[in-house]
Design a protein around this nucleic acid. Structure first.
Lengths: 224, 224
DNA sequence: TTTTGTATGTTGAAATTTCAACAGAGGGGA
DNA sequence: TCCCCTCTGTTGAAATTTCAACATACAAAA
């Protein structure tokens, strides 16, 4: 467990929890680590929400698949990030998403009730973790608002540009990598892959962007 | 202030806070009540997030308007519901939405910092309110996931049916009223109003639904 | 009652997306 | 090296949406 301390210390869930208290906390929380191969699911749609997951290594994707098999990409998770916390805190019986490993990856799972309910040992850290959870869940809200901001645009062109500008802003550079391949980006933007590829090709020919696989470069913020 | 006690007691923010403590709490929180006319804004896009709002009477809508004036409807709020809490808890400098009164309405505004920071009087209720906030923010997450579920559908037909089925499920009846007029529903579904009206007309003629203003009735769950 | 304004429904052309199918590039393994 | 498979880009036809414009119904105001 100790080998994950570095990443756990960076995890917002353990913010302001003393290093020496972490070992005790993990035991009290009955935290356990699991490994996944690419494509495996940590959490499946319609399961009850019980656990909070912390990405330790690799990366995961939060996706939802509807009745007809249409896939919608919600977010990409990198080490230190959490998932499942909103559903567990809200106590939903059926999570509306799946969480899939997008490469070999490891997570730590914690029973959410163990966070909110103080244990018999009267551990100090519970309160701090609830405060931390509140901030994390609130921040997750912003991620969803961001997706809505992008996907509420009506055309593939507008969605793509909105997404790329947002990424550029977050990376602080007009050149950056995105965590999605074409199909996944299409699933995030809620458009057709072929249409997305066509749009990228068009922007490339117009000299608006440069795109190589998941590496993008914006030349002109707007093609006014 | 006392005249709002009934609605405040039902507000999830004050869940498990003793009735006798509420008066003290409101004073400690420096809670204040404001009135708004239809169309007025309690909160504007790009303002810093500072307050948590509680709807006391009337109703409000959370909307976002982009660069080009395209409006996107996020949610409708009725008495007892909160808004702004996610942004305030996440400490964002620019809220991504506006909150507008959809009729004459009243809200109670509370400085979010006063909730999370214990006061000098060492009031008891702060901790309970943080626990409550966590659940509220987590639930807000579900509302956003729900909107994404609906709007990720590709056609107006699918979006509309997904929305209506969801409403029917929440009302527990195939007959119900929605809180939006046609333009607002179009803004929620992220489609064109005229296209939405056309689709509603089609479904009506096919006998799939009955629709009069904001009152809907579903005859056949699916038009397989 | 008449007027005015808003909400809703309709329509047809233009723009865009979806869909299905295929081609080329590149990586990994045999 | 060759083969296989995945990812990306292209394309053209069909389906759908957007856009602009107008008709109608209804409610509030004059």
């Amino acid at each position: 467990m100790e080998k994950y301390f570095e990443i756990l210390c960076m995890c917002p869930l353990f913010r302001d929890i003393a290093h020496w208290e972490l070992t005790k906390a993990l035991r009290c929380l009955n935290a356990r680590v699991f490994s996944f191969e690419k494509g495996e699911a940590v959490m499946n749609e319609s399961e009850p929400a019980k656990y909070v997951g912390i990405v330790l290594t690799g990366s995961f994707q939060i996706v939802r698949t509807d009745f007809f098999g249409n896939r919608s990409m919600i977010a990409n998770l990198v080490p230190g990030e959490l998932f499942g916390e909103s559903f567990a805190c809200a106590g939903v019986e059926e999570v509306p998403v799946s969480v899939l490993a997008s490469e070999a990856a490891e997570v730590m799972l914690i029973d959410c009730l163990k966070i909110s309910h103080s244990c018999s040992n009267a551990c100090q850290f519970h309160q701090q973790m609830i405060d931390n959870l509140l901030q994390i869940v609130a921040a997750k809200n912003l991620v969803l608002h961001q997706k809505i901001e992008v996907t509420s645009k009506r055309t593939t062109h507008e969605k793509l540009m909105a997404y790329l500008m947002l990424q550029a802003k977050q990376f602080g550079s007009l050149e950056f990598e995105i965590p999605y391949d074409r199909q996944e980006l299409a699933d995030y933007l809620e458009v057709e892959r072929s249409g997305l590829s066509a749009e990228i090709g068009k922007l490339r020919r117009q000299g608006v962007i440069e795109a190589d696989r998941n590496r993008f470069k914006i030349y002109k913020p707007f093609d006014v």
